[in-house]
Design a protein around this nucleic acid. Structure first.
Length: 405
DNA sequence: CCTCCACAGGAACTGATGGCGT
DNA sequence: ACGCCATCAGTTCCTGTGGAGG
């Protein structure tokens, strides 16, 4: 007699296969995927194109600075325009070389320059080692390749404010070198397109750099809730099978993203995650409820990955903050020292701890507030902004922290 | 009005890492 | 083999500070 055993794996696989998919083309819901239509950005597209027009005539356009909050399509528009121009010029003997780098992804100035160099054809370690050279040497090599091949280069620096930070930290004049590189070039040219989220970052820049960097400026305005809705609907047409998503869900999704400074990327992500959740639940309609779940999930995922990516002492500190919730640096430090003792770790100095605390604060996992207690001195009070359960769950895998939970 | 607390947070430095050019 | 360069985590030393309590 056959056993009435149903393999749980088979069951899940069967269910998944029989359950219908809500997606027609999931790819469309990734913001990086460049769609044919970028809605509500005609003005900006025009402006960007206009300022880069000189490239067609083999001359160097002004350096360009593009501002806008996250998810306003800045990067998309810039990339699209440049790609089109590049295509146009392909047949001509004066090619445009397009290099793109996101300063946020590169932790160092050196890394950023290397990334540029790589895209310009300095592929091998020999031509451009990933470490060991001085920054000016890397820069010289980049310049000489441009010259050698007579390239019209366009450097797109995303999140240029981060780069500005890096530069100021090391005290190097790279910006200045880049913006004035054209004076050194006998052949070829170099145009800088900076993209920034921070409208105030200019003020922190060296005035000499500023004058040549921001020859032209374009500001991307935030999307309104209505515009986000239209963008979503456009994507939904290609991404989902018709009639799988409730109108109310779309409204909620655009409203949620709209409140957060009109971030279209977030809205699209939200929709995708909601779709995935609905699919897993075998629902055949995406409803408001799924959007809410998706929002929660994304929030939690973000927190968990952030927590897990911290090194040991940062984790210990978060635990210390958790144990001594809502208390001062001094108390947290005590608590932290105890934790160190139990896991047999050498404790760091208080100076370092304050630094780490403010680093963690920046990511938003904890929040701090400076308080003055008169003759009891000045201190900072920290408290968790997330659920202790989330932390416990995230740290469970870390063996060194096992017995602290 | 002055004092003095309990830290905040800047600056400069160290030591390790990793890899260059010569 | 040697000096050099960039970077990172961490340390040492430091100056600055709002207001309760004298």
């Amino acid at each position: 007699m056959a056993l009435a055993y149903i393999d749980p794996i088979d069951k899940l696989l069967n269910d998944a296969a029989s359950g219908k998919s809500l997606f027609k083309n999931r790819e469309v819901l990734h913001f990086t995927f460049i769609p044919e239509t970028i809605l509500h950005r005609d003005e900006e597209q025009k402006k960007v194109t206009q300022s880069l027009l000189p490239l067609l005539k083999k001359s160097r356009p002004s350096n360009l600075l593009v501002y806008g909050k996250p998810g306003t399509g800045k990067t998309l528009v810039v990339k699209k325009v440049l790609n089109k121009i590049q295509e146009r010029v392909k047949e001509q003997s004066f090619p445009i070389e397009l290099v793109y780098a996101n300063s946020k992804e590169e932790t160092t100035l050196y890394g950023l320059l290397v990334k540029f160099g790589r895209q310009l054809g300095l592929k091998s370690q020999k031509e451009l080692p990933s470490t060991g050279l001085s920054i000016s040497e890397v820069f010289n090599r980049i310049i000489s390749t441009i010259e050698k091949n007579t390239l019209n280069t366009v450097f797109v620096v995303d999140e240029i404010d981060y780069l500005a930070e890096l530069v100021s930290k090391t005290g190097k004049d790279v910006f200045y070198s880049i913006t004035r590189a054209n004076e050194r070039l006998k052949k070829g040219s170099l145009t800088l397109v900076g993209i920034s989220n921070d409208l105030t970052f200019k003020e922190r820049l060296d005035p000499r750099v500023l004058s040549s960097l921001s020859e032209e400026e374009i500001v991307f305005t935030n999307y309104t809730v209505g515009q986000i809705k239209e963008i979503l609907e456009e994507r939904i047409k290609t991404a989902f099978i018709p009639k799988t998503i409730e109108q109310a869900a779309i409204n909620l999704c655009s409203a949620m993203a709209g409140q957060e400074h009109g971030d279209a990327r977030r809205a699209i992500d939200l929709l995708r995650v909601a779709g995935e959740i609905a699919e897993r639940e075998q629902a055949d309609l995406i409803q408001e409820e799924h959007i809410r779940k998706a929002s929660l999930k994304m929030e939690e995922d973000k927190e968990t990955t952030a927590l897990n990516s911290y090194p040991l002492h940062e984790k210990l500190l978060i635990l210390a903050v958790m144990k001594a919730n809502g208390t001062t640096t001094g108390e947290i430090y005590q608590s932290y020292k105890n934790l160190c003792k139990t896991v047999r770790q050498k404790e760091l100095t208080q100076r370092r701890i304050t630094q780490i605390l403010s680093e963690i604060e920046m990511t938003g996992l904890i929040s701090g507030k400076i308080i003055h207690q008169g003759m009891h001195g000045r201190t900072k009070k920290f408290s968790l902004t997330l659920h202790p359960e989330t932390i416990k769950k995230a740290f469970k895998e870390d063996l060194t922290l096992e017995d602290l939970l």
